[in-house]
Nucleic acid binder design. Structure first.
Lengths: 193, 193
DNA sequence: TCATTTTCTTAACTTTTGTAAAGGGAATTG
DNA sequence: CAATTCCCTTTACAAAAGTTAAGAAAATGA
């Protein structure tokens, strides 16, 4: 159950067998159904999740009650409500499964302990966040630089699997547009070919 | 010259005098003029910067040659071309001063050495990145959830100094709109009051 | 200080998205 | 298997942003 997890950490740092067993003490696996809320609005997130199988998104709620997708996570990614988890404050975002998921769960307290007992854990998380930051900046740039249509075609190119995997209305808010507008864009592209 | 720097690090971790002097070995201060490129397109960024005084932005270049502002940094913030610096790859963004700046400079090699010799440095950078990630997510959410007008009024409220400090065309691309559109928004707001 | 350049604003027009409402199709359920 | 529900598409109209170009204001420099 943990092979994928160690394969992932190996991309950043190499934990020794001893370090692995220390970390392993705090890990558990968990299966959750589709549409399960891993973190609800206002929760103080107490866990981060590594996705063995499945698909997770976080979304914000507008005043009008719309769900705005912030990010979509799939297999072999870490997910969580960063802001709430790291600062231990009430979450302004909701973390929800889009499919039945098999997760590796790491609790907040466990991670804090590991930061002290396995110093390399700091390096692992630092490198993970470095990578995440680079990606977040690219997302911001794409939102500003590209029109919705371009963002959709980029996604078709870079993550074709994802386009067919998630509901259109989720995809739409992820791209920063309404489902209606996404439908129009899809038609425009269909007509061209 | 380094008081602000240590005051900043104190918000995340407490470096001992010994640790400070280790870190201090790799720090230098540098004054740069307005419109200076700290990192140019294609450069492999070899330094990060702490801003004692001044204002810095990073921007992307579109195919049409437009400069799209990704973020604006001011006093007491760390800045750099994250992606290029951390992965030591050619930068896809340009880091440019918007004012004459007084900077504290930390070279890449120095930081790598410090990660080994001052383990707490990993914790510092980890916490810094945790904070940055939370903020980056909020920026993404704001870009998707709010209309340009709302983003502008939010900025007026939260960073009123910045609005009058940076050129409108820079501010416009930072908000994800054209200078023309920003000008219209400003007029709309003026007329209301 | 005057001239030049740059930046910001305004206007007219086009394109795109948002909004609201209606319709079609597929999946779900009794 | 029919009915309901949910999701996606389509339409028509309103609102907003992009584009281009021209003019006003401000900053820059000789």
């Amino acid at each position: 159950m943990y092979e994928q997890f160690w394969k992932f950490t190996d991309m950043f740092v190499h934990f020794s067998d001893k370090e692995r067993s220390s970390i392993r003490e705090y890990l558990i696996t968990r299966d959750v159904p589709k549409n399960h809320l891993l973190v609800d609005l206002g929760d103080i997130s107490s866990e981060v999740f590594f996705i063995n199988k499945g698909c997770v998104r976080f979304y914000y709620l507008t005043e009008a009650g719309e769900e705005i997708t912030g990010f979509i996570f799939t297999e072999n990614m870490f997910t969580g409500s960063h802001e709430s988890f790291f600062s231990q404050t009430p979450s302004t975002q909701v973390l929800q499964t889009l499919e039945p998921c098999e997760l590796v769960v790491l609790p907040y307290e466990g991670l804090q302990t590991l930061f002290d007992t396995v110093p390399k854990m700091n390096i692992f998380v630092r490198k993970l966040l470095e990578q995440r930051m680079s990606h977040a900046q690219k997302v911001v740039a794409s939102l500003i630089m590209n029109k919705p249509e371009k963002r959709y075609t980029s996604m078709l190119e870079l993550q074709p699997d994802l386009v067919n995997r998630i509901p259109q209305q989720v995809l739409a808010t992820y791209l920063g547009i309404t489902p209606v507008s996404l439908s129009r864009i899809r038609k425009r592209i269909m007509d061209q070919d």
